[in-house]
């Protein structure tokens, strides 16, 4: 049995969830209980007041203003993200360059020490290259291969090591110690 003065019952009534027998019981209770009758009437009146409430309408330019702000903020966020990504990429790139510089420095040293001294290797390669070029064979595969070899072996020395000069020197100091 339902307690008709309970919250659960009233919620059920207001939701329109009564079965026909329950509805009949409820109507009978309303006719007998003045408190419930008064409350029921007050709730019905409130319902009407709220249901016919005028709908507030936003100012006409609000949507345009909002869109403009949202688009602007999205762009700003994108810009910051791009900046962040660029910064990280540069940082990563610098790290890779330094690492490569260090590795190639050691590689060159090892190779040079194994064949001749490093300076001699460079001299021999340069002389061969110049000789070939003087002989008018500037674009022969051999010349290109030699040039590539020179770049490969000594480029890091010149360019990359300049970027990572501090690290390379430290490395050399450690190797020589």
């Amino acid at each position: 049995m339902w307690d008709m003065h309970s919250e659960a019952w009233w919620i059920k009534v207001l939701d329109g969830d009564l079965t026909p027998p329950e509805q009949a019981l409820w109507e009978q209770h309303l006719s007998e209980c003045p408190t419930c009758r008064a409350e029921w009437a007050a709730l019905a009146q409130l319902e009407m007041v709220l249901r016919v409430a005028p709908v507030p309408v936003p100012p006409a330019d609000l949507a345009a203003k909002t869109t403009a702000r949202a688009v602007l903020m999205r762009r700003q966020r994108r810009l910051w993200m791009l900046l962040g990504i660029s910064f990280l990429t540069v940082l990563l790139g610098a790290g890779v360059v330094v690492a490569l510089g260090t590795v190639y420095w050691d590689f060159n040293r090892l190779l040079a020490a194994m064949v001749f001294s490093k300076d001699m290797l460079l001299q021999v390669l340069m002389r061969t290259l110049v000789g070939l070029m003087v002989a008018g064979r500037s674009f022969s595969p051999l010349v290109l291969a030699l040039a590539a070899g020179l770049l490969f072996l000594f480029m890091p020395h010149g360019v990359l090591a300049t970027v990572a000069v501090v690290m390379v020197r430290r490395q050399r100091g450690v190797a020589e110690a």
Binding site: V55, V57, L62, A63, A70
Partner: peptide, 24 residues
């Protein structure tokens, strides 16, 4: 995906109810 026309559409469609809620 940041398409401006779509953002504008969403704002136009939902601004009245959002404004209504905020007003109440």
């Amino acid at each position: 995906h940041g398409e401006e026309s779509a953002i504008s559409w969403l704002v136009e469609a939902y601004q009245p109810m959002v404004f209504g809620l905020c007003y109440r």
